[in-house]
Design a protein around this nucleic acid. Structure first.
Length: 283
RNA sequence: GCGUCGGUGGUAGAGCGGUCAAUUACAACAGACUGUAAAUCUGUCGCCUUCGGGCUACGAAGGUUCAAAUCCUUCCCGACGCA
């Protein structure tokens, strides 16, 4: 059976994936499926670096603005939506191009990972949260020793989720990682120096565009501070700044400058985590 | 000028005679990833090493001691107080 072609454009943040993908889509008669865990949310525009209608240059973009920021989106929902869209693009004789920096989302779709559909169990989570790391480890070991052997036993979040799944299904199902597509990987990156500079410049640009105001507005529209903090990076640091929760940085001339300094560092750390993830693809 | 309190690893900041290459946090570097993934988590982090250990370190120089980041003296620097 001949596999359908799928192009993936990935790489750390601030490498110009979006622009690159638009050009590519034009050449390849493609449509773009965004793989970005923050751009799925409505209203997270400047801070997430969401592409504008103008920048799309007529190329259809999917999976942007499909979720309410007040609620958490999930990989599983992402995969479900993406599968449908990709099938449709292929049916119409066009090339699907996945573009984004969220490695987990890309993996789920490209390798067709059948992740268990166990909904968050708030009562259980609240209960589990009270337990120590060791207790959680024991609990998972009892429920599903196989999963226990492979999980990161220091990661409370993962342990709780695994217990949640095992409680609902009896055990945590194993997932295959076979791609149903003929995948063409395109990895974009820059040297450290250059990437750092790009991150810096882009951050200033976003500030000029009114990123702080965007966060303020989101909060006014009912997105809780805690939620904004959980969204990470720009949303997190600006939310902390607006709440005056940032400690004064010794070297910074102002609170705002200190916030930007910390944010820039966090973005760089994020970019490196992305690199670590994407290295897997480079064989 | 006198007085007081301080000067510790990239930064902040513990330690206040031995168990200190020095708690911790941050940064840095590497890595993990089965429904939060911009999240969450792990390892390394003075120099050298045949991984036993060796060497240089806590503002500087001396001194006391079997032993000093820790005590004493002088000097340099900083903050505050009195002039």
């Amino acid at each position: 059976m001949k596999l359908s072609k799928l192009i993936v454009v990935c790489g750390p943040t601030a490498t110009g994936k979006s622009d690159y993908a638009v050009t590519l889509a034009k050449e390849q008669n493609g449509e773009i499926i965004s793989a970005d865990s923050r751009q799925v949310y409505k209203g997270l525009d400047i801070g997430s670096g969401k592409i504008t209608a103008k920048e799309m240059k007529g190329v259809p973009h999917h999976l942007i603005n499909v979720a309410n920021p007040k609620r958490t989106f999930s990989v599983v929902r992402y995969k479900k939506l993406a599968d449908k869209i990709i099938a449709d693009i292929i049916k119409r004789g066009k090339t699907p191009i996945i573009v984004g920096g969220t490695g987990f989302y890309i993996d789920a779709v490209v390798f067709n990972q059948q992740l268990p559909e166990v909904k968050p169990n708030k009562v259980l989570r609240k209960e589990l949260e009270k337990h120590s790391l060791f207790e959680l480890q024991e609990k998972l070991q009892q429920l599903d020793n196989e999963r226990y052997e492979t999980i990161d036993i220091h990661n409370k979040v993962r342990l709780i989720r695994a217990i949640e799944i095992a409680t609902a299904l009896g055990s945590v199902p194993k997932v295959d990682k076979h791609s149903p597509y003929e995948v063409e990987w395109i990895y974009l990156d820059h040297d450290d120096e250059v990437l750092k500079e790009r991150i810096h410049d882009r951050l200033l640009k976003r500030m000029r565009k009114g990123m702080v105001k965007e966060v303020e507005q989101l909060h006014e529209q009912g997105v809780a501070w805690s939620r904004l903090e959980a969204l990470g990076l720009e949303y997190r640091y600006i939310a902390l700044y607006l709440q005056n929760k940032l400690s004064n940085q010794a070297h910074s001339t102002s609170l705002m400058a200190g916030m930007l300094e910390q944010l820039e560092t966090a973005i760089w750390q994020y970019a490196k985590r992305q690199r670590t993830w994407f290295k897997k693809y480079a064989k």
